[in-house]
Amino acid sequence: MHAKTDSDGTSVEASWPPRSPPRRPIYFVQSPSNHDVEKMSYGSSPTGSPAHHYYNSSPTHHSRESSTSRFSASLKKPGSLNAWKHVQLGDPCHRRRRLVDEDEDEDEDDDEMDGLYGGSGRNVRLYLCIALFFVMLFTVFCLVLWGASKAYKPKIFVKSILFQNFNVQAGNDQSGVPTDMLSLNSTVKILYRNPATFFAVHVTSTPLELHYFQLKLASGQMQKFSQSRKTQRNVKTVVKGYQVPLYGGVSVLSSAKEHLDRVSLPLNLTFVMRSRAYILGRLVESKFYRRVRCSVTLHGKALGKALNLTKSCIYE
């Protein structure tokens, strides 16, 4: 130390050079290597706070913040060099960009799911429309066939009736009441023709009945049959009555029991012919009904002779 004497005799110590501020100890933080980062990134996620992107003059704080930021960024996107650079440079928009990218990815996933379900819905509607179109087309086709079949009505002609025997005698009904009893036997001949060109028919009939006004004297059931397209046949049916009580209802017979060869008895022959055509299996069915009523006169002296009925019948 050197002392300097002033003019007044006082000594002034020589001034020390200015002191530098005390140096703080330097801390060195080693960043994890790539191998360690990969291990930690595939492990459990750390719950560290997000990195702060502001500048600090302290070297220690700056070193810690940068290493922490690099560590968290490497955990969030391992292997992403761009993300690593953004974190190192302290890009404040990095987190915002990541959020926008995640939102866009979620929107794309939603669009893909909507497109998948929307496409299946459109396919279902398309299939339903195609099925409905074919159903309507098939229905129209069936209606056309049904309408065309109505132009081919079967032809029915009652040709003749033949009375084999005829008898009236006294007797008792089932309750024992005495009355005249009638018995007769006859055969009806019918010509049936199917003019259709594309279907056969199945034919049945109600019982053929002979009436004297409201009194039924005889009946017979025609056998059912099938007739092919554009063919015809003669159908014979036996119509008979046995021991039919008259109760005095037939006055002509009451006065002529002893002379039946002189009897002339007016009768009505009635029946309904039913024809059914299966045009397209059981799907298209066409029905035809013909009601027939013929005026017949029984002559006692004409037994065994066929009576022509071609001009004596009404077809409804």
Score class of each variant (00 low, 15 high):
Asp114Val: 11
Ser254Trp: 14
Phe138Leu: 12
Gly304Pro: 08
Gln174Val: 10
Phe28Pro: 08
Phe157Gln: 15
Ala151Arg: 12
Val296Arg: 03
Gln30Thr: 01
Cys142Glu: 04
Arg122Gly: 07
Asn34Phe: 13
Leu75Met: 13
Ser74Cys: 11
Gly48Val: 14
Thr270Val: 04
Leu298Ser: 05
Leu126Ile: 02
Ala73Gln: 06
Arg64Cys: 08
Gln88Trp: 07
Leu89Gln: 07
Val158Glu: 04
Gln169Thr: 07
Gly118Lys: 06
Trp146Leu: 05
Thr204Arg: 08
Val263Ile: 05
Arg19Val: 02
Val135Tyr: 04
Ser219Tyr: 01
Thr206Met: 03
His52Asp: 09
Phe271Asn: 11
Val37Asn: 15
Arg19Ala: 02
Asn123Met: 14
Leu260Thr: 00
Ser49Asn: 06
Thr297Ala: 08
Tyr42Ala: 14
Gln232Tyr: 01
Tyr192Gln: 01
Tyr54Gly: 10
Tyr127Thr: 02
Pro207Asp: 03
Pro78Arg: 09
Lys305Asp: 02
Leu81Asp: 13
Asp114Gln: 12
Gln174Gly: 11
Glu106Pro: 05
Ser31Met: 09
Met181Tyr: 05
Asn56Val: 09
Gln164Met: 11
Ser63Ala: 02
His202Gln: 08
Asp107Tyr: 13
Tyr315Leu: 15
His211Gln: 06
Ile314Thr: 14
Glu38Cys: 15
Pro195Gln: 06
Leu298Phe: 05
Phe225Tyr: 07
Lys224Ile: 10
Val37Gln: 13
Asp114Gly: 08
Tyr289Met: 04
Gly171Arg: 06
Asp101Pro: 14
Lys287Ser: 08
Thr197Gln: 08
Arg122Asp: 01
Gly147Asp: 10
